[in-house]
């Protein structure tokens, strides 16, 4: 399983705080002084991907987990089992 990369592209971040709000594990947090989100603890990330969903400017990068192949392979198995 490849390691993940969790990153906030500082130049793109508009400081809306949404990614830090939705992160269930404080992998992402918010710096009130800089008014930017930042990665507090990459190892805590559970890849729920809510941060990706809420960021209005695609400033959050999350790569590596749940590759297309994993999801397709898995979806295929679910479909076969559930008919």
């Amino acid at each position: 399983m490849p390691k993940i990369l969790l990153k906030v592209v500082e130049e793109s971040c508009i400081g809306c705080e949404k990614c830090a709000e939705v992160c269930p594990v404080l992998a992402l947090d918010f710096d009130e002084e800089k008014e930017k989100a930042f990665v507090m603890d990459e190892t805590a990330c559970i890849c729920c991907r809510q941060c990706l969903e809420v960021c209005p400017v695609e400033a959050v990068i999350l790569e590596g987990a749940f590759t297309e192949k994993d999801i397709l392979m898995d979806s295929d198995m679910i479909r076969r089992r559930h008919g």
Binding site: I4, I46, D74
Partner: peptide
């Protein structure tokens, strides 16, 4: 691990 996608979740969490 690939039986249901909870297995993939598990693999991801154990990635390190």
């Amino acid at each position: 691990w690939y039986y249901e996608n909870d297995g993939i979740t598990a693999l991801n969490e154990m990635r390190n």
